[in-house]
Amino acid sequence: MPDVRILTYSLIGLGFGIYLFVSGFRWFREKRLIENMPTSKIRSIAMGMVEIFGEAFPQKGKALKSPFSNNDCVYYRYTIEEYRSSGKSSKWVIVKKGESRTYFYLKDETGSVLIDPKGAKIDIPKDFEFNSSLGKDPPDKIKSFLKSNGVGFEGLFGMNKTMRYIEHFIAPRDKVYIMGTAGDNPFVEEGSSQRNEMDIMMQKGKDFYYISDKPEKDVLKLYGWWVIGGLFGGSALIVGCLFVIFAYIGIL
């Protein structure tokens, strides 16, 4: 009897292949959307789906602090992972993850608009990573963050677990590309402001909401790879896994 794990992995691979294939079409649709949508100037932004590009600024000039590296930022996302072993296999397991929910501004040469990052697909590179392990303590800033969030970095007999702390952030003045829905600004009474863009807030709408620190050209290039990977990689995975599954059950 062949190893049953082969069947398990093939079934998982088949599921992942189908997911990739379906995602490939979604990415294709999003790529076309980005391609076809001209960039709006912020002062003349209209309600609905828009694309804007500019510099990020904190609200009221007060920047957030990123949780691990303590850098000034307008948005951050973090992940704490622990390396766990079970039998022969070992893997990184997410212990805690989170992100900031603070609004920020995006400014171009014509004006600035409020951004609510909630619900956005935020595509930014890793800015900080630290690994703690036996004999290697995390820095004090991380220790105090772990303590306030109830996450321990020590295991049996007070020995350090193998853990890693990853942080992504958007710093003030970073160039940011946003595609999303321009809706009413809930903090301003409608029509009360002198400038059009003050009545508006970028937010999650019915369509997709995407934030990146790359210019549009690079975003499209990235999407191009996702589409190819999703459609062709997904197809190859489906066909390959079906091949293995049929071979396993002996009907090839």
């Binding site: 649709r29 459609l231 062709f232 197809s235 066909v239 091949f243 049929f246 059950i249 009907i251």
Partner: peptide, 25 residues
């Protein structure tokens, strides 16, 4: 075998889906 036929057909169907999906897009 029937399995190999199904694998080949699934590859063809996936390819057609990509072409069809592209034009629908």
């Amino acid at each position: 075998g029937i399995g190999l036929t199904m694998v080949i057909w699934s590859a063809i169907i996936l390819f057609l889906l990509i072409v069809f999906g592209y034009f629908i897009g």
